[in-house]
Design a protein around this nucleic acid. Structure first.
Lengths: 169, 169
DNA sequence: TTTCATGCAAATACTTTGCATAAGC
DNA sequence: GCTTATGCAAAGTATTTGCATGAAA
């Protein structure tokens, strides 16, 4: 898996600026084929600004005039994850927001999320010190860390203001 | 909500050592009733050592001779969470383990999880320094932190050994 | 021209809801 | 006795699977 290909300036990523090469190598390793559907899925997933659900991605594709089915979206999300193009970013929330959400990861730095428990707004942050400590914890337990999920849930500034609370209700 | 009641030495928790009082106050605030089903649910949820799913909890109840339905379990999990007896501990994993998992929280310190991506083993840890940094991040963004989900995913010592990998495949 | 991907429909898994009956308070 | 909880069956939502057709390689 060519990790370099996830970077913005990767020389492999020639086709319209999308990381087709990385995706291709994953397909090849499965004996898979590069269909039209997979190409538009790749591009659309990369173009999404924020977070998306499977059906959201389908809607975006339909709006662009492509006619693929939700089944195909589901079947290919796994490939896109394996290719390092997107990642699963969901943690079960109280407000069961319906299914898993994803975000594209290609050409982006690692980050985690702050989620407002009231309005649901999601804010990205990255805090290298936390990552370092996570590595320390993993090492302490003999784990070889692959990835992590961190979601901080609380009240965003707006909701705090609106509720007139400063911590005590 | 009497936070004290979550501690092991809480004087309210008289009935067989279970935190009935705290659960009761939540019920009362909803105009709810303390049924037999809710009592055994409370006890069984507190007795589970590790993590559990809704249907797992039902099985445990059935094994003890109680005959409640899965619907009742689902309906009361929300109450148990509100009473601070259990919490949702699930993060979507690759090995779709089927549904949300819970764990009881009453009388226990806060902790997070290390999950093996290979065998699925879950190890609890607590690392106050990480919690402190999370508070810092929240403050930085004007959030009032309520809770967080942290799951570190990687290879456990056993799976590393078995795979004969030291980091490079 | 063989093999794999797609789309449809149906199946599955988890969770929630409507309604009649049973049980707290 | 009033009102809420339970259990059943059915609905709902997110996701997966079987199978025939269509498209890559």
């Amino acid at each position: 898996m060519q990790q370099d290909c996830l970077k913005k300036d990767c020389s492999h990523c020639t086709q319209d600026g999308y990381c087709v090469d990385n995706f291709l190598s994953v397909l090849r390793s499965h004996g898979g084929r590069l269909t039209k559907e997979r190409i538009v899925l790749l591009k659309t997933a990369c173009d999404v600004k924020g977070h998306f659900h499977a059906d959201h991605l389908l809607k975006l594709l339909r709006e662009q005039g492509y006619k693929l089915s939700l089944v195909t979206v589901y079947r290919n999300l796994a490939l896109l994850i394996e290719a390092g193009v997107i990642r699963r970013a969901s943690v079960h929330e109280d407000t069961r927001s319906g299914g898993a959400w994803y975000e594209h990861v290609w050409g982006r730095e690692h980050h985690d999320h702050l989620v407002c428990s009231c309005c649901g707004v999601k804010i990205e942050f990255s805090y290298p010190a936390i990552d370092v400590l996570q590595e320390a914890v993993a090492k302490e337990h003999g784990f070889e860390l692959e990835r992590h999920h961190l979601e901080l849930i609380g009240l965003c500034p707006e909701c705090r203001k609106r509720k007139g609370a400063d911590g005590r209700p």
